[in-house]
Simulated scan of single mutants.
Amino acid sequence: MGGFAWVTLVTNDSYSLGALVLAHSLRRVRTQHDLAVLITPGVTESMREKLASIFTLVQEVNLLDSKDQENLEVLRRSELGITFTKLHCWRLVQYDKCIFIDADTLVIRNCDELFEREELSAAPDVGWPDCFNSGVFVFRPSQETFNSLMRFAANKGSFDGADQGLLNMYFSDWAHKDMSKHLPFIYNMCSTATYSYASAYRQYGENVRIVHFIGATKPWLLYFDTVTGIVHPPPGCNHLQPLLQIWWNIFCDNVHSQLTNTMGGLAGALSKLTLGECRTDEQQAIEDHIRKQNWEQGYIDFMGRDSFDNILKKINETLATAPGITSPITEIEESQENSNNRVEIQEIAVESKPISPGTLN
């Protein structure tokens, strides 16, 4: 077959949302190359059909898991163990060269020039720049390399329990041997980096080619106002709003209408939303359900809608109207006794029932 391809991976329907938007972003910037997505059995048939409508190749692979809980606990990201499944990309030997790109990325400008690079080309990781970030990398498919990686994983493991640690150990000379394999940061701009180095973002942000929504800035987990069509970034990340808005614009224009309620997880829930219309009680219930799902999966907007102040406000409002209250509700007072503005919590007994995350508006 030959030729080049962009390759991504999804293990469930929720992450498939990211893959669909990613694929449409690549089509929008007029890539000249194939789009391939690796899927695992956790992706429903309904979602597979939608993936096949935009990707050139949809290929099922078996799930690989590092099972390295000790190192994964250091990252506090136990779900990353299954990212070993990414190694299957080396088995796409029908292609001469590929670029792997995580499903939580967005391509802003055409990047086909990356296919001129050689294996293993990648951008430095913001957490440890002598390591590369495995969210975007150039590679040459090879069954021999895949087998070698599997042996290496079995014998050496991964320093972070995930694919990034493994690949950096395997391609251990990346940091110093050939600087042509160091991609500029604009080809894998991690969203958290703009928070820590806002001045550089102001200077170079307009040149970004690929943005990587790592951590809590996953676009599909943020609050999106279905009436106004505006996405609300987490506090402190307002600079990301234009990029997050591009993601949601693509979702609304090209993806939302393709979703069905037979899809799993967040994809099925989002299929029930109406866009650009006044919010009905049914719509509010759906949005609350989505929010509850995010809570249950550990994606909580601690700094935004689900901040302590907002939760306390809702609890106070609920308790104020609840029957059986025998004493004032819990009061929180800021102590001015020291320069650290220490917070004192005065607990006063109340009769109440636990508040479900889905009831917090």
Results as ranks from 00 to 15, higher is better:
residue 256 H to C: 02
residue 285 A to H: 06
residue 339 S to K: 04
residue 89 C to Q: 15
residue 313 K to W: 02
residue 34 D to H: 15
residue 194 T to D: 02
residue 162 A to E: 02
residue 245 Q to H: 09
residue 305 R to W: 04
residue 287 E to M: 14
residue 168 N to I: 13
residue 359 T to I: 11
residue 149 L to H: 01
residue 167 L to A: 09
residue 126 V to E: 03
residue 290 I to W: 01
residue 233 P to E: 09
residue 159 F to A: 13
residue 359 T to Y: 13
residue 91 R to E: 04
residue 217 T to P: 02
residue 31 T to L: 10
residue 169 M to E: 11
residue 17 L to W: 00
residue 2 G to T: 13
residue 268 G to L: 04
residue 20 L to E: 01
residue 266 L to W: 00
residue 317 E to L: 05
residue 4 F to E: 09
residue 211 V to N: 03
residue 31 T to N: 08
residue 43 V to Q: 00
residue 194 T to M: 12
residue 225 D to G: 10
residue 79 E to D: 10
residue 38 L to G: 04
residue 87 L to N: 14
residue 103 A to N: 09
residue 278 C to Q: 14
residue 361 N to S: 03
residue 196 S to L: 12
residue 172 S to L: 06
residue 332 I to K: 12
residue 312 L to T: 07
residue 87 L to E: 14
residue 258 Q to N: 03
residue 77 R to M: 11
residue 18 G to K: 14
residue 177 K to N: 09
residue 145 T to G: 02
residue 343 V to S: 08
residue 81 G to K: 13
residue 175 A to S: 12
residue 327 S to P: 08
residue 265 G to P: 02
residue 70 E to V: 15
residue 123 A to Y: 14
residue 144 E to W: 09
residue 211 V to T: 10
residue 320 A to N: 15
residue 320 A to M: 11
residue 85 T to A: 10
residue 17 L to E: 01
residue 81 G to R: 08
residue 299 Y to E: 10
residue 249 N to Q: 07
residue 141 P to Q: 15
residue 331 E to W: 03
residue 19 A to Q: 06
residue 180 S to F: 12
residue 323 P to H: 08
residue 162 A to N: 07
residue 92 L to N: 00
residue 306 D to N: 05
residue 148 S to P: 02
residue 160 D to N: 13
residue 165 G to V: 08
residue 166 L to I: 05
residue 44 T to D: 03
residue 330 T to V: 12
residue 49 E to V: 03
residue 10 V to T: 04
residue 302 F to G: 09
residue 97 K to M: 02
residue 316 N to G: 07
residue 356 S to Q: 15
residue 300 I to A: 08
residue 157 G to R: 13
residue 185 F to S: 10
residue 218 K to Y: 08
residue 302 F to C: 14
residue 283 Q to A: 06
residue 57 L to H: 02
residue 229 G to F: 05
residue 295 W to Q: 07
residue 274 T to E: 09
residue 152 F to W: 07
residue 190 C to F: 07
residue 211 V to P: 01
residue 144 E to V: 15
residue 35 L to S: 12
residue 257 S to K: 00
residue 179 M to Q: 03
residue 255 V to F: 00
residue 180 S to C: 10
residue 150 M to Y: 11
residue 352 S to D: 14
residue 149 L to W: 01
residue 94 Q to K: 15
residue 246 I to V: 13
residue 190 C to M: 09
residue 207 N to S: 12
residue 121 S to W: 05
residue 317 E to V: 09
residue 40 T to M: 08
residue 131 C to G: 08
residue 103 A to I: 14
residue 360 L to A: 13
residue 23 A to C: 13
residue 62 N to G: 12
residue 266 L to T: 03
residue 349 A to Y: 11
residue 117 R to P: 04
residue 93 V to R: 08
residue 58 V to S: 04
residue 45 E to S: 05
residue 205 G to I: 11
residue 231 V to R: 02
residue 296 E to M: 03
residue 308 F to Q: 09
residue 292 K to I: 01
residue 156 K to T: 13
residue 61 V to N: 01
residue 283 Q to H: 11
residue 132 F to D: 07
residue 264 G to N: 01
residue 158 S to E: 10
residue 353 K to A: 13
residue 60 E to R: 15
residue 206 E to V: 06
residue 117 R to C: 06
residue 287 E to I: 09
residue 250 I to N: 00
residue 335 S to P: 06
residue 254 N to F: 00
residue 135 G to L: 03
residue 119 E to R: 15
residue 58 V to W: 00
residue 51 L to I: 10
residue 261 N to V: 05
residue 48 R to I: 06
residue 179 M to D: 00
residue 360 L to Q: 12
residue 37 V to D: 01
